[in-house]
Structure formats: structure tokens, C-alpha cells
Design a protein around this nucleic acid. Sequence first.
DNA 1: TAGATTGTTAATCGATTAACAATC
DNA 2: TAGATTGTTAATCGATTAACAATC
Lengths: 212, 212
Amino acid sequence: MSNNKISKSVIRRLPRYYRFLCELEEKNIDRISSGKLAEIMRTTASQVRQDLNCFGGFGHQGYGYPVSKLKNEIIGILGLNNNYKAVLVGAGHIGTAIAAHMSFEKLGFNLCAIFDNNKTIIGNTINDVLIHDSESIADYCENNNIDAAFLCIPKSAAPEIVKRLYDAGVKNFWNFTHYDIQGEYSDVKVENVHLSDIIMTLCYSMNEEKNE
Amino acid sequence: MSNNKISKSVIRRLPRYYRFLCELEEKNIDRISSGKLAEIMRTTASQVRQDLNCFGGFGHQGYGYPVSKLKNEIIGILGLNNNYKAVLVGAGHIGTAIAAHMSFEKLGFNLCAIFDNNKTIIGNTINDVLIHDSESIADYCENNNIDAAFLCIPKSAAPEIVKRLYDAGVKNFWNFTHYDIQGEYSDVKVENVHLSDIIMTLCYSMNEEKNE
DNA sequence: TAGATTGTTAATCGATTAACAATC
DNA sequence: TAGATTGTTAATCGATTAACAATC
């Protein structure tokens, strides 16, 4: 696994490769050419070869790429085998949806605890994970060496919660709020999920179509 | 509003401009320079000016950009004032979260109906929107000229549901499943939301950090 | 007027695509 | 061997950044 800085564009495609390779593996297909893989991914063979070559020569001339080996390499590259310890904050609809449906283990995360400030649900579990009182979040994260937090809270609650998490050593965030974490803390890794932005993008396409 | 093909990169930034302009407007700030806006957006003044100029000269030399006017222009460009008619399919955790929390009106959508195949929740409402039986989806969409559908169903159910929607004239999708709609239908607009892909991207950053 | 800041062109940087020799 | 397909270099394309004359 070579380490000459991989571009953001390549990284954003890796989960897609991973997904399709899993499907191929399930179908017991044990090799695939860049051309075929490109077809499935709706991209070009050139791009597939360029992308995969960032990490080393996994293919064989005249043969293609071995599906299982490639899949496992990508697991390593993405770090899906690290079992990071994570917490989820906010057990509203979105938080509950995430906690209930996301297969964290497969994604390299161990969801250790959920936090909420609604007394009526504290003590409940979602998918066997206990809901704790938000008051205990700092202590919990410090004592348990939590690596990452999934933020499913209202924007207004975010600054305070992020501060507690940050001070407790949590430096990685999956952020559903519009609170700008990176603006406040420079040494954190954040993936923002701005659902309304994505709806607007769809809206733009629909509007554009109308103008054509 | 000039119509020389705007690039995908610019479009993806528009919702962000919109968001920050709304915030500025709420603070009663009535003008802003490209430099200041760039600071808030964490980009460059050059990019801000290039982006905004795709749609016409909204700024004034020596003065900057008028916040409200610019915001309204972006509303028009994104098409947030079109009031498209939409349905949501799948009232599980994610679907419910979306239906309950997303302010569709502000986003240019009118959520007309929700569909599910769970008999125990049919007839209920979420945010005043009625949950219908999935069986009636084709008739409903045809009779009501539905423009877009939000898919919050399992991947396995997607091919059948999308077929019914497509045949009923629905050509715009906001897709939470991993079902590849574009692969099957070429004349549809789709925005995919692959949450697990975004978690993996975070995972990659964390893993990379470790390797540094 | 002088200072600020745009609109726009040119320069740079990065990402994608094409081409082809190497080789399984 | 002949055919297939990679790894990799070169060419193209697109997006970002820099620069500066125009002008409010």
C-alpha cells in the first residue's frame, strides 16, 4: 500500500469499488477486467486502472483483477478493519435510523453508546446499544477512548456537544447538522451530510430540465 | 439568468451559498464582498466571483454583493420556488425522519403522500401527510402528476417500486438505496445518498491519519 | 478623488481520457 | 503462439487560483 498522497476524487470512489466488488464476490465471480468493472461503475476502463494503480499493481495482464484480493486490499486502504470506537449523539428520528440500520461493524466502527437528553428514552436500547444521558458524554468518551462521534442533533445543540466531545479527545465527526465544526476546530476530521443541500441539487436538475 | 451550461462543481456549491446568504440576511447584513463570503465558505474570493458570475453580474465594484438580491437570485437558479409535487416511499426510520424534519416547502417541494406496505401504519400521518398503501402508488402518482419521489425503502424493494413510479411518469428521484436507478432508466434525474459510503470516507481519513 | 472591489482574462493546477508497449 | 488486458506515459479537458484593468 504505497503512500504517495491519494486524491480526494479517488477516495470518494473507493466505497463504490468496494460495494461492487462485494457484489461480484457474492456472485462467485473471481476475476474482472477494468473494462467490465468500468461498465458496472459507469466510468471508463482508464479511470479504473488509474484508480487501482494508486495502491499498487493488483491486476495481471491478459487476466484482469482478482475480485477477492482486490476487495480485501480496499478494506485495508479504507481502514474498514480498524474497529474504531464510536458514539452517536441524538436519538431522534435520524439518529435512531442510523443506529438501527447502519451495519457499523462492516464499516469499521463499534458503536459503543448513544446519548440523548430526553429523560424518557434514557436507559432504552437501540440495536442493543444503550441510550445514556447527554450529561455523561464527556466522562464516557474520556474513559472509553472514543475515536469518533455521529452527530444527529439540532444545529443549536451542536457547539456545546462538539466542545465536550472535542475536549474528551474525540476528533472525528460524522456531522448531520449545519454547524461548521471545521471552522471552529482545525485538527478534526469531519464528513458533513447536508441532506437539504442534496435535495436542492436535485431541484436544480429538475429546474434546468424545464429551461431546456 | 444566462444558460451557458453551468458546471457540476458550481451547482454543488450553490446550496452552500444559499445557506450562508440566509444567515447573513437574518443578521440584517445587506451587503458582502467576495472576500468576506469566501472566508465564511472557506474558499477563495476568486472562486466566489467566478461562481456568481456564471449567472450574471450581481455585484458592484467597490461595494460587493447585495445579500437579499443574491439570495433571491439563487432561489431562482436552484428552482426552490417551483413547488414540485413529491411523494416519499418507505415510512421506516429514515423515511419518517425525512418526512418529519425536512422542510420541504422551503426546498421547493410539496410532499403530497407517503407510501408504505406495513398495514399497521397505513392511515397514519407524519407531519400531516397521510401514509397510503404502496399498492396504490401507481394510480396516485398518475392522477396527481407527481414530479419526484424520495426512496427510503430497502434495496430489494427498489426495482419494483421504481418501475411503478417511472411508468406513472415520475422521473426524479432522491435515492437512499443502493439500487442503481440510472443504470436501469436513462432519462431520469437521480441524486443518490449513500450514507455508508460517506462513513467509509471518514474511516479512510482516520486510517490515513494513523499512517502518517 | 482615493479606496475598495468587481468582472474577466490568463496561468496554474489537477483530474480524466487516450494510447500503447509490456506481458500474462 | 495469439489474444487479452494491464501498467504507465502522454494528451486533453476542466476547475481553481492569480492578476489586473474597469469602475463604483
